[in-house]
């Protein structure tokens, strides 16, 4: 069993998930991640889309033990064991939730520098859903 976001609805967010493009409010300048119909800060609805750098830092994180993640990630957890999830504070200001991948959980700290990578998220109805995860950014302190 899994919760459900249909393919057409998922597809409508590919600009965000694949290319890290997100809307900035024309009225108050707030970056909305993920995109909203009404600005999270001022409630207005006119945006300019921009491409993000994909750079950010760990705001907080957790290492979820096998079986502790949502059922959509069971297959991944069978292979990887634990799964690292973080709230990432983007360089542009907004926060997102994402998995950290290809990293040693022991080395993750609040404040660790990160960069976004393109990865498989999960499988549903035989279709692979892709999006961003983050890796440790070795080039920054």
């Amino acid at each position: 069993m899994s919760s459900y976001v249909s393919l057409p609805i998922f597809a409508s967010t590919l600009r965000e998930r694949y290319r890290l493009e997100e809307p900035r409010c024309r009225s108050c300048g707030t970056l909305n991640v993920p995109a909203r119909m009404a600005c999270i800060e001022c409630g207005r609805g006119d945006f300019d889309w921009e491409k993000l750098t994909g750079r950010g830092r760990v705001f907080t994180y957790t290492v979820i033990a096998r079986g502790g993640a949502p059922t959509e990630f069971d297959e991944q957890q069978i292979m990887s064991g634990s799964l690292v999830v973080a709230i990432v504070e983007l360089e542009e200001g907004a926060k997102v939730v994402a998995q950290l991948t290809d990293c040693d959980p022991e080395e993750v700290r609040v404040g660790s520098p990160l960069k976004a990578v393109f990865r498989k998220l999960y499988d549903q109805e035989g279709v692979v859903r892709y999006g961003y995860k983050f890796v440790m950014d070795e080039e920054r302190e």
Binding site: S3, T62, I64, A69, E72, V85, V96, V97
Partner: peptide
């Protein structure tokens, strides 16, 4: 569901 759960975490996380 759309962004949090399907990024890999629910309440324990």
């Amino acid at each position: 569901v759309e962004w949090e759960r399907l990024a890999g975490t629910n309440f324990p996380g």
